[in-house]
């Protein structure tokens, strides 16, 4: 790692002021950025450590309107275990947290750091390669190179995938996020956190430099709502997903009345699949229906040279999430 200054703010105001300085990085637990700094892919002059701001930024609370607020510094382990998230409505979020990395990663990794983490593309995360997304080379090296873990849809000039487990379920739950920057406080829909047409030059998210995420908000869920998450991966632990799917459905009288679906690990951003979800509305759950919905979810997907396996496995993962949600 290159040397840097380390700022310890005593308040969110101090953190904002420090984060506004040039060449400054905001740090949660640092699992993602320490890794990238070791590889000298990130060489900030200053790091603003948010961890001391526990009171303002940590913890899970049920709000007056029945919604749930998750502070940005809340760890994945806390999300796994919190009683406010034990219902079927949040099963997908808790499941996504539980299948992330290892106990050690979940004990420290924060929700904000998870959804804002940098892609795992092995070219852009290696000091040895110079690629377009890293801003160090002219092309996406994975597009024509080793792309087993890369995108099958939604890409233009860079085939990285978005690695976050938690982003897909949060999107299906219609979550919002609050940020602060300068004198402004912004609260927006989760979908706005990710670039609409992700290109190589886009970061993984749409935050401005120095913008600090303070909380994630999940609106109150109806009693018969259910959110589930399924993923494929090559190892039972330690590993990021090769494909993932989060689903939220509401059932009434044996029929599905509301549905949303978001795929993970298949595109440079978490991929909402509204057309596939719409096929579920007004229908009774069935294996046959789920097969058709899974086909639709991957309609238009085009594998690269080494990742065709993602299509059949991804469809199975969609069916798995649907089966869980309607069981």
């Amino acid at each position: 790692m290159k040397p840097f200054s380390y700022v310890v703010p005593k308040s969110l105001d101090e953190a904002k002021a420090a984060a506004a300085q040039p060449n400054t990085l905001i740090k949660g637990a640092g699992l993602d950025i320490v890794d990238r700094m070791k590889e000298r892919l990130q060489t900030p002059a200053t790091i603003v450590n948010l961890l001391p701001l526990k009171d303002e930024l940590k913890g899970i609370t049920v709000e007056a309107d029945g919604g749930i607020r998750i502070g940005a510094l809340t760890t994945l382990t806390e999300i796994e275990n919190h009683e406010a998230l034990q219902g079927a409505q949040f099963e997908g979020l808790v499941g996504a947290a539980r299948t992330t990395g290892t106990p050690q990663v979940r004990n420290r990794g924060t929700i904000a750091g998870n959804i804002l983490q940098f892609t795992r593309c092995w070219y852009v995360r290696s000091e040895a390669f110079h690629c377009l997304h890293g801003g160090r080379g002219p092309t996406c090296l994975a597009m024509t190179g080793q792309n087993r873990y890369h995108a099958v849809m939604g890409w233009s000039d860079c085939v990285r995938v978005h690695p976050s487990n938690l982003a897909p379920p949060l999107l299906t739950l219609d979550a919002e996020y609050t940020t602060v920057i300068g004198k402004e406080t912004r609260r927006r829909k989760f979908a706005e956190l990710f670039p609409e047409e992700p290109r190589a030059e886009n970061p993984e998210h749409t935050l401005d430099d120095g913008e600090i995420v303070t909380a994630i908000h999940i609106p109150q869920q109806s009693k018969n709502a259910r959110c589930t998450y399924a993923e494929s991966r090559e190892k039972q632990s330690f590993d990021w997903a090769t494909t993932a799917c989060a689903i939220r459905i509401v059932m009434a009288g044996g029929k599905i009345t509301e549905a949303s679906m978001v795929l993970g690990a298949v595109a440079p951003v978490p991929m909402p699949r509204p057309q596939a979800a719409a096929m579920l509305i007004g229908k009774e759950p069935s294996t046959k229906l789920f097969r058709r919905v899974a086909e639709k979810a991957f309609q238009g997907a085009a594998p690269l040279a080494h990742n065709a396996f993602k299509l059949p496995i991804g469809k199975a993962v969609v069916r798995d999430a649907l089966e869980q949600a309607t069981r």
Binding site: Y6, V7, V8, E14, A17
Partner: peptide, 23 residues
């Protein structure tokens, strides 16, 4: 890297100035 130990500096932020260490 194991080189490049330099003197401590204060962050050049406007007020409020938080505590800063290193590099």
């Amino acid at each position: 890297a194991t080189t490049g130990i330099t003197a401590a500096t204060k962050a050049a932020a406007g007020p409020p100035v938080p505590e800063s260490f290193g590099p």
